[in-house]
Design a binder for these strands. Structure first.
Lengths: 251, 251
DNA sequence: CGCCTGGTTGAGGTGCGTCAACATGGGTGG
DNA sequence: CCACCCATGTTGACGCACCTCAACCAGGCG
């Protein structure tokens, strides 16, 4: 299995984890879990796509669209708590369901495995923090532009991509209405972005890069420079508010 | 120490963790860590307040305001990675700094401790997801209303509270400008909210509750119903989009 | 064909940001 | 003590981004 979660796990531990597990196929449009439901399983998406969505007062929004291989509900499983989002398949999907109780027990017994789970959780937290910054710091067209750049990267560094799901869903993920998304595409056409149905071609002109300004501090697909002993280069121009002096750490 | 992270840790493990640790006081306005910095320590806020903020293209926003006892940077420590947010004291603060390397080593050696760290991380993820839903699903005045309700709860169930920090900072946390926050207070005055400097009195009228509509799926201060074997009551009226049929889980 | 869903386009309203003016209060220095 | 300054907060005028509602179009399918 490609999932790093189970990479270094002993066969014995693995067998223990799989007692009471399901491997199941769901058709598209299936609601796996509602907001507020108690969570008894860790879900691992092996094939297909899953949307996580939240709702409040007749409004709803897409929190994430998962593609294989991803886990979801991990935090709720660890805390033996309730789901904060509704999970819905958006196409025929294959999903592995691991009993939460067994997962927690195994984590407490096998520190190595426990650490792997913690890494998975930390990576998810990382992603959600990035998403929050994306949402609060960028405007609609800027979010779309960076989404397109991320897709270009994910689909192999090409400049012509195919949107992996409906624009309606994309608009919700990007935090806008379908109409606004449509107009955001028009806005980006000024930078050489062309749309024909689900196909989008992105000309990576300097003007477009300057508009999107992707950064490793928001966009997951940009790798950080490797961690060495030395300092890391600072990005993006002059510091806006250097008011407070940096302090040296010493006892 | 009140921090549940260290609640069940053996003295031996604890001593190991504290090798190379600092306990340090910082004045207000001190930048502890910049976005993108490599992270070598887990920070534990013992006294004072810390703001986590993100910036992009000359814009900046507050991601969280921490009060004792809280950890930050935990995800970056686990992943041995870089900070996604700038951390700044907003008043004189006492902060415990634990070496990340030691923390990771201890997690891999002591599964019980590792699980406690994972719980802390899961709770943080929980909070950030809630914050994202708050941001995407609610308007400015609604966010303020629910913030006030949360403060009422935190300050002991009273209806007259004192804002714990400047309105300028609050506005950034709530994702708006200071001017807009000021107007949001005016909007809420229609529901009996009165502001005099940092003091706010909240009359919990039915109209106000209906406007704010706090929910355990977004607002951290509302506890979930206890987890029993039975089903949990569903909240908030008719389901908006019951299009897809709920599926029974069975092999 | 006719229907339905998803996408686009237009008109109009609203929430929120921007800019500016002004009030207030704490802190400093004369 | 007061004069002054500066940071914070408030208020008003205005513009832009985005939402809402509606009409319209295209493709898929019975």
């Amino acid at each position: 299995m490609a999932l790093p979660l189970f990479a270094g796990v002993s066969p014995r531990t693995l067998r223990e984890l799989f007692v009471g597990a399901f491997l199941q196929r769901f058709p598209g449009g299936t609601t796996l879990l509602l907001e507020g439901d108690p969570v008894d399983f860790l879900y691992v998406l092996l094939e297909g796509m899953v949307e996580l969505q939240g709702a409040w007062k007749h409004r709803e929004t897409t929190l994430a669209v998962l593609q294989p291989v991803s886990t979801f509900n991990l935090a709720a499983v660890v805390l033996d708590s309730h789901a904060l989002a509704t999970a819905r398949t958006i196409e025929r999907s294959e999903i592995l369901m691991l009993p939460g109780e067994a997962l927690r027990r195994t984590m407490k017994a096998d520190a190595e495995f426990g650490f792997a789970v913690t890494e998975e959780l930390a990576a998810t937290l990382n992603g959600v923090v990035r998403s929050t910054k994306n949402q609060k710091l960028r405007g609609g067209a800027e979010r779309l532009a960076n989404y397109l750049l991320a897709q270009c990267q994910r689909q192999g560094g090409v400049d012509k991509i195919c949107l992996p799901y409906e624009k309606r869903l994309l608009s919700s993920l990007l935090g806008m209405t379908p109409e606004t998304l449509s107009r955001a595409f028009v806005t980006l056409s000024r930078f050489g972005v062309e749309v024909k149905g689900p196909e989008v071609t992105v000309s990576r002109s300097p003007a477009f890069e300057r508009f999107a300004r992707p950064t490793s501090l928001i966009d997951n697909h940009l790798a950080f420079p490797p961690r060495l002993t030395g300092k890391v280069e600072r990005e993006q121009g002059p510091q806006p508010l250097p008011a407070a002096p940096r302090l040296e750490r010493n006892g």
